[in-house]
Design a binder for these strands. Structure first.
Ligand SMILES: Nc1ncnc2c1ncn2[C@@H]1O[C@H](COP(=O)(O)OP(=O)(O)OP(=O)(O)O)[C@@H](O)[C@H]1O
Length: 715
DNA sequence: TGTAAACCGGTTTTT
DNA sequence: CCGGTTTACA
């Protein structure tokens, strides 16, 4: 079982009795160590499989790890270790023990869309929707507080000169939490937050989980946040059987509260800790590794570490610049087709910085008949048609769910509009009865037309619920099929009969096929949806090119990797470029992307990119200059390209806006001075180049100023 | 009162 | 460009 490990990995697998940290670069076999360690613990019968808890970064990584462990153990595996993300683990704990914090165990998990709706509502009611407290800003702040384990009560009592404190935020935070509580909901950050609180406040519950999970293993430890760090510490505090791996150069989630100090301080936190290093990379060619190592050296805030390989020299990285993103996608498609002679589609991945980039890639790949699968993103479950169907399912499962009632009711429209809905909601709140109950008990107070419509809708839901009860297998699939017909939803799409509506119908059918294999109950399905965001929404395409964001590529490997959009503004992203720490994170992100490749790397960039329907001129990414030039082959498209990425001269006579003429170096958090309003603080920046707008709070009052014209200076 | 059509505002990255 | 929200009209 341990044959394929090198001496360091072997030593690590056999190490017991004290905490262990492995720090090592990309592709050095950290994840491989974890899977073998789990298998070894089981094989040696040190404990039963179900007493092992392994934490991965994504659900996909978790299921991959499960498969690996199973392969290693073969037949002898009857019970399984608990392998999941922090969030899924917390959901598991809270479904069992949330009641110990006086909250029901059958909470629902709000996704970001529902969070947004709640916040928007609060801002509207407080009459501050048009101020600097944008919902994005507020949500990011609340997330930050929760990750730092600051409850809204704690927050409210912070001294008013505390850096984090803001009186308005304190109010919003409280209202937001109360909103969640009254809907019996928690958000993603709450999962971690409440689990930590539960363990801290309730030693008995903690002890139960400490006994249940005698071994704790964590992948990607460099990207744990404060709450996750505390969770691990609590779980391991008795037995100290904690084994973590990570790479500080792959810390790419600090914007979400991930704190690289957690890995740097591991030895301080666990006094007996042993630290091991892996230095041999088994994944990539010498050229790829040289390129990646050369790039990451440019980070100042970094410990040096070795990473070498015995693999072949390999091909140079290829850089190709095109006129626009369409041609970029065409180049990638064409390259994929020519690579197809030697490689399979499944060996190829295309990475990009922002989800918005995937659109063009999808279109062009589809037009060239290249099969692809889109991984991750807020893809599937946030599409409006999927949400509509989910609303029906939620309502069938729980008729008291007013939110679901309203959404289902208005798709397709049933002649009941905003006014009636508001009345119903108010009545529901006043009487403590759900809208569904009100209708059933004839307690509504509306015009006949609306009442009739509501009645038949309620009957529809009742009948569907009855139908569901009679089913025995493939229950959700059959239910969805039936509701599509009876609700008129399918008819609505068929009448529209546009390509888009047909697409929507396809997506809904996807729900049917997702739920098919496992004989899922409605409740289990609905409860876990927020957690399974990463379903590949393409139907079991085995041999297909993978499209995903760079963040999603973490931990994965492909024979051939394309990196699209190697441009200033995209990588590094314009929001990061004036903040040194953020810029270094962008560089790490580039490092992660490069090191996904085993054999070949293609980097592309464009001259002009269409953003919000406007053409923007784009310089090539500074990171391209930082990659050792002898690993890089720059393909020339036209003679206008003179060899150095920054010396490109745009020769076309086409009209375009030269949008990069103006620039600034203000950042969020900067103190600034204005002629009229005096001193203020920038709390948000939007737009780019000449359209940059700063949101500045002057002495209580907030202003949005265009930096190109505004007379503000840094102080 | 409900719905369709204009309108406005927002782009990192995700569990 | 897209989706959520406001507005104008039936
Ligand atoms: N001792 C070994 N001998 C041969 N191949 C190995 C060895 N260790 C790991 N590998 C291979 O190297 C590749 C990278 O391993 P793994 O994914 O475990 O690295 P990692 O350190 O987790 O990488 P990353 O930090 O990029 O996620 C895998 O294909 C793995 O099978």
């Amino acid at each position: 079982m341990l044959k394929n490990l090198n001496p360091q990995q072997l030593a690590a697998v056999k190490h017991f009795g004290s905490p262990l940290l492995i720090v090592a670069g990309a592709g050095s076999g950290k994840t491989k160590f974890l899977t073998h360690k789990i298998a070894y613990i089981i094989d040696q019968k040190l404990t039963a499989p179900q007493h092992i808890l392994a934490i991965t970064f994504t659900n996909k990584a978790a299921s991959e790890m499960k498969n690996r462990v199973q392969e290693l153990l073969g037949e002898q595996c009857t019970e399984f270790p608990f392998i999941s993300t922090f969030h899924s683990f917390c959901a598991y704990v809270l479904r069992k023990d949330f009641q110990s914090l006086n909250r029901p165990n059958n909470f629902i998990i709000y996704d970001s869309y529902e969070q947004q709706k709640l916040i928007k509502n609060i801002l509207k009611n407080m009459d501050i929707s048009k101020t600097s407290y944008t919902y994005n800003f507020v949500l990011a702040k609340i997330s930050e507080f929760k990750n730092k384990l600051i409850s809204y009560q704690d927050y409210a009592t912070l001294p008013s000169n505390h850096i984090l404190y803001d009186q308005v935020l304190a109010q919003i935070y409280e209202k937001y939490q109360q909103g969640l509580i009254s809907n019996n909901a928690i958000d993603f950050d709450d999962m971690l937050f409440y689990t930590v609180v539960l363990f801290q406040r309730n030693p008995l519950v903690l002890a139960k989980y400490q006994t249940q999970f005698k071994y704790l293993l964590i992948d990607e430890y460099q990207d744990t946040n404060h709450a996750q760090y505390n969770l691990a510490k609590l779980l391991a505090s008795q037995h100290q059987n904690i084994y973590v791996v990570g790479d500080f150069d792959q810390n790419i989630y600090s914007w979400r509260g991930a704190n690289v100090q957690n890995i740097l301080n591991f030895e301080k936190d666990y006094a007996q800790a042993k630290v091991l290093y892996l230095e041999q990379n088994y994944r990539s060619t010498k050229t790829i590794l040289k390129a990646a190592n050369g790039l990451i050296k440019h980070n100042q805030q970094r410990k040096e570490k070795k990473l070498w390989t015995e693999n072949a020299e390999g091909e140079p990285l290829v850089f190709y610049k095109t006129k626009d993103e369409k041609q970029e996608a065409e180049y990638i498609a064409q390259k994929i087709l020519s690579l197809k002679e030697k490689s399979e589609y499944q060996d190829i991945a295309v990475l990009y910085r922002t989800n918005a980039q995937s659109r063009v890639l999808e279109e062009i790949l589809a037009s060239q008949k290249i099969p692809y699968k889109l991984m991750g993103g807020f893809s599937f479950y946030s599409r409006s048609e999927v949400k509509d169907i989910m609303a029906y399912l939620r309502l069938i499962y729980n008729q008291a769910d007013n939110q679901a009632f309203i959404r289902a009711l208005s798709k397709p429209s049933r002649g009941v509009g905003q006014t009636s809905i508001t009345k119903l909601l108010n009545q529901s709140q006043a009487t403590n009865l759900s809208i569904y109950e009100l209708i059933k008990q004839n307690k509504t107070n509306l015009a006949t037309k609306q009442t009739q419509s509501l009645k038949s809708f309620a009957t529809l839901i009742f009948e569907l619920e009855q139908y569901y009860q009679t089913l025995t297998e493939d229950k959700i699939g059959k239910l969805v099929k039936s509701l599509l017909k009876k609700s008129g939803y399918q008819q609505m799409l068929e009448i529209e009969n546009t390509p888009i509506s047909l697409d929507r119908l396809e997506n809904i059918k996807e729900i049917i096929s997702i739920t098919k294999n496992e004989n899922l109950e409605l409740g289990d399905f609905l409860n876990n949806i927020a957690l399974i965001s990463e379903i590949d929404n393409t139907v079991n395409l085995d041999n297909a090119v993978t499209l995903m964001t760079m963040h999603n590529a973490k931990g994965l490997e492909y024979k051939i990797v394309f990196i699209a959009g190697m441009e200033e503004g995209l990588l590094p992203h314009y929001r990061s470029k004036n903040i040194p720490e953020a810029l270094e994170e962008e560089r790490r992100l580039c490092y992660v992307s490069l090191t996904r490749a085993k054999e070949q790397l293609f980097l592309t960039a464009v001259d002009d990119r269409l953003i919000f329907g406007e053409l923007w001129k784009r310089p090539t990414s500074c990171f391209l200059d930082e990659i050792p030039q002898d690993t890089l082959l720059i393909m020339e498209e036209e003679k206008s390209y003179s060899g150095h990425p920054h010396s490109i001269v745009y020769k076309s006579k086409e009209k375009f806006k030269n949008n990069q003429a103006f620039d600034h170096d203000f950042n969020v958090g900067d103190k600034v001075k204005h002629k009229i309003w005096g001193e203020g603080i920038i709390h948000n920046l939007e737009g780019i180049a000449e359209k940059s707008i700063a949101h500045i709070r002057f002495n209580g009052e907030s202003k949005k100023l265009m930096l190109k014209y505004a007379a503000v200076t840094k102080v």
